[in-house]
């Protein structure tokens, strides 16, 4: 799968939030740990709902979690 055009700061945000594990984030968002890993590595772009849930877990705006790299 080609890398998406959206980068993210999830790994750093997890570390900044009491070193949250991927499993913990996955449980709070409602996805699997493998999905969180795929999102972090840029292999999978989550839906809007999941993206907003991730931002909500960290208590930051969506733009601080995900960044779109246009054409």
């Amino acid at each position: 799968m080609t890398q998406t055009t959206i980068s993210n700061n999830i790994r750093r945000l997890r570390f900044d939030n009491d070193e949250m594990t991927q499993q913990q984030l996955a449980q709070r968002v409602g996805v699997t740990r493998q999905t969180v890993n795929a999102i972090e590595l840029g292999k999978y772009s989550p839906s809007l709902e999941v993206a907003f849930r991730i931002a909500s877990v960290f208590g930051v705006p969506l733009e601080q979690v995900f960044e779109y790299h246009g054409d």
Binding site: G30, V31, T32, T35, V50
Partner: peptide
């Protein structure tokens, strides 16, 4: 737990 969890969007 893994088996009982519903499929997420990626799956």
């Amino acid at each position: 737990e893994d088996a009982q969890a519903p499929k997420d969007e990626r799956e």
